[in-house]
């Protein structure tokens, strides 16, 4: 599989304080990767740097061989940790919006997922519950045939049923050659869907590896390993 995401000497600081300092990383296609760490460890900073919402202080980020910019944004599908769609839009407006701007957007897929959830296309986002809005966002993001999915806390603060729905939607819909990065602090909830994991803390990579290898060699879950590494 080809390299989808390549990071070299990446550093992001605010004034003198380094928010992220993770050196070199390489992500090959066909994998689901967990970016795991406590709140404020730099997960969101990482995701925003790769999606182009933040500018690195040092180093470079390449997606599909291109430096982050308008070209990489056409192959990156980003789910922020907050509501980011325009509230005045109706569901059908947002669908049209994605179709207008993203060539890789699969409208049919999005429509079928929305109808499975019983979401009315004429309903405005403003009138939706927080949970429904989150699902609509996820559906839009996962309906793109992207090369890189960046999902920031996709299951943060949802009930178990919604969690199952979200995980199933991710597994069933991501592009097979793509890299999926899931940033979360809820490790137990996602670890079974991960190939690899990266622990970060205070902006630095603490530990990284394959989920199955850890289970095989240490006989423990990533969640337990995490608790050990981050015990306080």
């Amino acid at each position: 599989m080809e390299t989808v995401l390549e990071i070299k000497g990446l550093k992001k600081s605010y004034g003198k304080k380094a928010a992220l300092d993770i050196g070199n990383l390489e992500f090959k296609g066909g994998k689901i990767i967990g970016l795991l760490g406590p709140n404020g460890s730099g997960k969101t900073t990482f995701i925003k740097l790769v999606s182009g919402l933040l500018t690195p202080t040092l180093g470079e980020i390449k997606v599909g061989g291109m430096l982050v910019g308008a070209d990489t944004k056409s192959i990156v599908s980003y789910l922020p940790d907050a509501n980011y769609l325009f509230d005045w839009m109706k569901t059908k407006d947002v669908i049209a919006f994605f179709k207008d701007f993203y060539k890789d957007f699969d409208e049919g897929l999005a429509l079928s997922m929305l109808s499975n959830l019983g979401i009315d296309l004429k309903q405005s986002l403003k009138s939706m519950s927080k949970g429904t809005k989150e699902k609509v966002q996820l559906i839009l993001v996962m309906s793109r045939r992207a090369k890189l999915y960046l999902l920031d806390e996709p299951i943060g603060g949802v009930d178990p049923a919604a969690r199952d729905y979200i995980l199933k939607t991710i597994i069933s819909n991501y592009n097979e050659e793509a890299v999926v990065v899931i940033a979360t602090h809820l490790i137990g909830d996602v670890e079974n869907i991960l190939d690899d994991f990266i622990f970060i803390d205070e902006g630095k990579v603490v530990l990284a590896g394959s989920v199955d290898e850890v289970r095989e060699e240490k006989g423990k879950s990533i969640d337990n390993l995490f608790r050990e590494v981050f015990k306080c």
Binding site: G30, I32, D164, K168, I171, S172, N192, I193, V211
Partner: peptide
């Protein structure tokens, strides 16, 4: 494989 993975909520490669 995809559907089984989704049913079990596990990674498709696994």
């Amino acid at each position: 494989v995809r559907d089984l993975a989704a049913l079990a909520e596990v990674n498709p490669n696994t």
